[in-house]
Design a protein around this nucleic acid. Structure first.
Lengths: 168, 168
DNA sequence: AGTCAATGCTTGAACTTTCAACGAGGCAGG
DNA sequence: CCTGCCTCGTTGAAAGTTCAAGCATTGACT
């Protein structure tokens, strides 16, 4: 009898006590982890976690290069943010820009050899940090559960229909 | 035979394929969600998600007031960040600072009536967004699983021993 | 070819976060 | 009371992010 009354604005469906608890735990866990990894990488690799992720994506791409827009999509960040980030990484000598042969508007972000070396140096420490924070703490079922949960959430937020908001 | 060889540095324990997949899914889900909620709140409440969280914490505190350090701990952010944030929220008229009667160094962050009203206005929309992204998509067992997982991760990252890094 | 909307990426300004340094007050020991 | 150290919270500058606007190219339509 508490929802869906007639007159005014619909009573919002509040979170149950359990849901509130889960939401709080989620927020705390994710902010603590983000923070932790950001610090770890800032210390050991001289860049924030997002930037590191960009290098990782490039290192996994065919010739260590990716169109800007594609990289932005892969990393789930805006093109604007990527532009600034690549500018910074370029100053560090870890990434280089190249013109796209097939589209004169396009740019390719290319992982330099130096960037690749840096990645090889810092990867073990980073993996260890991720492992220590997550995979060494969770039971195998939990890892699988986390995967399913994240994939579900992700799917709900992805504008899968093709109406990409990466134009932002 | 791939780990723990004798000579050089210990071969790092890389992530298995499944672990990599889960980690990727985690990163994507959390960044998309953060992004989504940040935008939702920026649009509907004129502030980022973290700032909204501060108001929520204050609204749940005894007399709508909290010591700065305590608020920072609750929200899992640094005191410096909080200082800047409160300055901004003060400009908006949603928070006010008060001297702490028992400790002259201390400051209390107080939620103003205006801030409380703003919270009441924007809460329904925010809850709806959280619900739409998470609780309406996950099965009840998954919600429980997510809670356990997050609490485990959180516990591993909390400097529970009393060596608080909130001094930062 | 000529037009016009859409795409690819960049830019600068405003805002937020981090980092290191600081001033002020508390607290303990002499 | 004085000294030295710790905690509370703030500050300014540097770094990162967002937002809206902008230029160049492309693609479709005529």
């Amino acid at each position: 009898m508490t929802n869906q009354s007639a007159g005014g604005p619909p009573e919002p469906r509040w979170l149950s006590d359990e849901e509130q608890g889960v939401w709080r735990a989620y927020l705390h866990a994710t902010t603590l982890l983000e923070d932790h990894l950001d610090r770890q990488l800032q210390r050991d690799a001289g860049m924030p976690h997002v930037y590191y992720g960009l290098l990782v994506h490039l290192s996994q791409a065919p010739r260590h290069r990716l169109r800007m827009t594609e990289l932005a999509q892969d990393a789930k960040i805006t093109r604007s943010r990527l532009s600034h980030a690549v500018a910074r990484l370029e100053k560090n000598g870890w990434v280089r820009r190249e013109e796209c042969p097939s589209d004169k508007r396009g740019q390719l972000a290319v992982l330099t050899d130096e960037g690749y070396e840096m990645l090889k140096r810092s990867a073990p420490g980073h993996v260890a940090a991720v492992r220590a924070a997550i995979f060494d703490r969770l039971a195998p079922e939990q890892v699988a559960q986390l995967g399913d949960i994240c994939r579900t959430i992700q799917a709900g937020l992805q504008p899968e229909g093709g109406d990409l908001p990466w134009t932002r």
